[in-house]
């Protein structure tokens, strides 16, 4: 019998756990110093929208009945409680720290997109720097790199996204992307219940961006804050 592991929790919830994605009864098992919410499963779940929604739904219900919930990646199946303990043990301290960090908190996600047109960028970039003709290639390279970094059109937009909801941010994770027009995703950990205020702050703070647009989603369980090395 395999175990599907949904999340780690800091305290065993006192309320009914309910059922997981296959209708299986959920239970909390101890694994070293950690507690995990698991369900018995005969076979791995198929990767379907329904399964993904059910995984998320189960984790959301955990967040409703206990304060600190660290989601596991979809499809986390172990052979049994011993196997689970073996896998968690090397990261126990890191996971405990992560649980403390997400306690009473939830995740909001902002995605930053380029908006056309960017006519202005050409004029900005084409202003030639006053470069002495006798500079070597190394010096010219540095000057060009400085110009590129200064005129980064995305920098202002990203700064706005990071600054606007500053009062709400308890932790932050920024991912930059290459698939245009998508520029970056920003995940913020906020106190539970602050989602609407956070979204309003982000929209207000980015309303004047001419070459970028944002979407805000959430609240989510703290998926983006479950990985180890966040300071």
């Amino acid at each position: 019998m395999s175990l599907y592991v949904y999340a780690l929790v800091a305290k065993g919830p006192s309320e009914e756990l309910g059922t997981g994605m296959s209708g299986e009864a959920l239970r909390v098992v101890a694994s070293g110093r950690l507690l995990a919410v698991v369900g018995d499963m005969y076979a791995p779940p198929p990767v379907t929208p329904t399964a993904l929604y059910e995984h998320d739904r189960t984790i959301r219900r955990m967040t409703a009945i206990t304060d600190a919930v660290l989601p596991l990646r979809f499809g986390s199946i172990v052979d049994g409680e011993l196997d689970l303990a073996r896998r968690l043990e090397p990261a126990e301290a890191t996971l405990e720290a992560a649980l403390t960090r997400v306690a009473g908190r939830e995740q909001m996600t902002v995605r930053l997109y380029e908006r056309q047109p960017r006519v202005e960028e050409d004029t900005r970039m084409s202003a030639p720097p006053a470069v002495a003709a006798d500079l070597g290639p190394g010096a010219r390279y540095l000057l060009e790199r400085r110009r590129t970094l200064e005129h980064d059109p995305h920098r202002a937009a990203l700064d706005a996204v990071l600054a606007a909801p500053a009062a709400f941010i308890r932790a932050q994770r920024v991912e930059s992307h290459g698939s245009r027009p998508l520029i970056a995703s920003v995940h913020h950990l906020i106190e539970r219940g602050q989602g609407a205020a956070y979204a309003a702050a982000v929209h207000a703070g980015t309303a004047n961006l001419i070459d970028a647009a944002v979407t805000v989603s959430g609240p989510w369980p703290p998926y983006a804050f479950a990985s180890g090395e966040l300071t």
Partner: peptide
């Protein structure tokens, strides 16, 4: 499996995929 899922995904499913398939604790 994932490619098929993503091909047909709407915006909100994409957000879900991002969270549950590329984030969360990895024990494997």
């Amino acid at each position: 499996e994932a490619a098929r899922l993503l091909d047909e995904a709407d915006a909100s499913l994409l957000d879900l995929v991002d969270n549950v398939l590329t984030k969360g604790v990895v024990i494997d």
